[in-house]
Design a protein around this nucleic acid. Structure first.
Lengths: 348, 348
DNA sequence: GGTTAGCACTCTACGAAGCTTAGTGCTAAA
DNA sequence: TTTAGCACTAAGCTTCGTAGAGTGCTAACC
């Protein structure tokens, strides 16, 4: 579906807005009489019927059945979001409690978990946060800690405050003392680099190491290799407040619900969608219904925004709810939270 | 409700078993005709009706309405689990794929997450795992790592392999170098102790420190205090495979579902129940319906077992599903997984 | 005395019929 | 171009009747 060539004239556009607006409020198909009564266009139901018939022909509205009112299509929501919502009419969002609470959390993952909770509470939808994966990370420290036997815990600390841990298994035990030296050595070499740069550097170090044999360096390279292998893909996502969605009338049917919860349980689906948002890196992005290409979620919309560490977008946060959501309330919430988190990450 | 004084005679008992068995299989109220036909007692429906009426009087069966068949009560399930299931008839559970997969996971939390997935898959119910909290932990290393400014990452490593992290904020920055020394000092002092013992030791060290002033020791004590404060209560629980429960006919009603998912989202409810299981520390424990005292879960049963590190029970794993579940299949699964995890934790 | 056949009774589930209601499309007049 | 009017449609609700499953009770049977 492409945008229709034919422009909507102002009157049709207003009617469409009214239909979308009313449907968002009531969750019911909207009839011509309702529009005529509630919204003072000075037109009779008959006229509005004609216009609605036109809008249906153009693909903006559809009828569940012959004698029902009209329901907005995905295209209608898209038009509504792109052309009818005016950002200067958005309510200002500012919540001191949220700000204070988030400021008091020092642990990165805790911060993000709490963020997803607030997103869901402020929007009355489900809140989602995609945690930065290591690809986007500039490392600050790499720490090796001895566990049991030849098992070693690796702690990655990113400049952004993100902490990631991993366990690796060696051929033979290494003492905590040596591990400390290695930690410092590796950190010295790798601090300030991204995963990709570290990979390159590792190759280079291996070659150097061949010429000038150094036991410690040798071990350091080996450990780093184990530490950094298989570490690109891992993304994590927090979803909170899914109950909010359950309360929406459109998910009263068990089958819909199941499909949706399947998508939530299979986090990989969500990650896939959110990764796409991260790549596109828009301010606040709205993905409506089937635009997200996941069958289970064709009744849902996402409102997302990337959040930044410094100048780099490192993750995505937002909300997920039925297509029929109050975009004018939700969009500023997501924008607000993204800015808030970006500030918190960058200035701390 | 206490156990009834009056013993069930063998015939009533068999009939009760048949009713429970059939209801588990069909999810429908069970009538006298069904029992007479499917289970060859050599009795007519009328006789069975009489017996079922007796069983109802004794509180083992109930009727949804006058002309429906009978449904087992909680007491019936309890009797079934306690007296009618014979563990030597349980199917043997052994799954090489599960064993191999779990063996290959080195990270504690990953291991537990995967365990909850396997629990759900093997039982066709929702799998749950309660992670050990620090109360039950014997510490092995405590590591302080410098983050940004005066922020310090604390890594707790338990003997069991459990790794817990936390961020603390100091009055003023401390260099990584000093932190390393403090890490070693604190580890030296605290290794092998439990949280409670560490608390005691900290008080003692504070007093000592007053008499013989030592800058490093001073800092170490301060950091430890911050690290160990507010760390008792935190429990974590993994729930996987909730979709399995959605497919059970008794949760076809939206309202039931919502109640259940509310309980799942509010992890604190689950933690409360599981903590109780941990205290009681039975082998495999079955909690039926209203026995768990949580209104939202009165249609559910839990089958749980503690898992051990060495001789100490440190956590709980199990499954959660409708009361009407196949206990004879589920109980051995939980037992198997508990043993498997205990072995993995202890011998590694 | 326990067991069973028979029968009246009860309640639910299901479907058809009928009514109401919301909303449409079309036509003809303003 | 707009509007009033009207015929039409489909869904939802209610009512009613029926079929079916299952019970409890009684009386007969072994």
């Amino acid at each position: 579906m492409t945008e229709p060539k034919m422009e909507l004239n102002p009157r049709s556009s207003s009617i469409l807005e009214a239909v979308v607006h009313d449907h968002i409020a009531t969750a019911e198909p909207v009839g011509s009489r309702t529009i005529a009564k509630k919204y003072k266009f000075g037109l009779s139901p008959a006229t509005i019927r004609n216009i609605m018939a036109d809008l249906e022909e153009m693909g903006y509205l559809s009828q569940p059945h012959t004698s029902a009112g009209r329901v907005p299509t995905d295209r209608a929501y898209r038009f509504y979001v792109n052309h009818l919502l005016e950002s200067h009419h958005f309510p200002k969002v500012k919540n001191p409690v949220v700000e204070a609470t988030l400021q008091s959390i020092h642990e990165f993952n805790e911060l993000m978990k709490e963020t997803s909770v607030f997103l869901s509470q402020l929007s009355n939808q489900a809140g989602i946060v995609l945690i930065p994966n290591l690809k986007k990370t500039v490392f600050k420290r790499i720490e090796f800690i001895h566990l049991t036997g030849s098992r070693v815990l690796v702690i990655f600390v990113a400049e952004s405050g993100l902490v990631h841990k991993k366990t690796i298994e060696l051929d033979r035990p290494i003492s905590q003392n040596t591990l400390e030296k290695i930690s410092n050595l590796v950190t010295e070499q790798m601090a300030g680099l991204t995963l990709q740069e570290i990979r390159k550097k590792l190759v280079k170090m291996m070659e150097e190491e061949k010429t000038q044999f150094d036991e410690l360096l040798n071990q350091a390279v080996k450990l780093s290799q184990k530490a950094f292998e298989n570490e690109e893909g891992e993304s994590e996502v927090y979803v909170r407040g899914t109950l909010n969605i359950l309360n929406q009338p459109e998910f009263a049917s068990i089958e819909r619900m199941k499909a949706l919860f399947k998508a939530f349980e299979e986090k990989s689906i969500l990650i896939q969608i959110l990764d796409k948002c991260l790549e596109e890196d828009q301010n606040v992005k709205v993905t409506i219904g089937s635009e997200n290409c996941i069958e289970e979620m064709e009744d849902c919309s996402l409102v997302t925004s990337t959040y930044k560490y410094g100048n780099m977008s490192v993750g995505v946060l937002g909300i997920i709810g039925p297509k029929r959501m109050d975009y004018s309330r939700v969009i500023p919430v997501v924008g607000y939270m993204a800015k808030l988190i970006s500030n918190l990450l960058t200035n701390s």
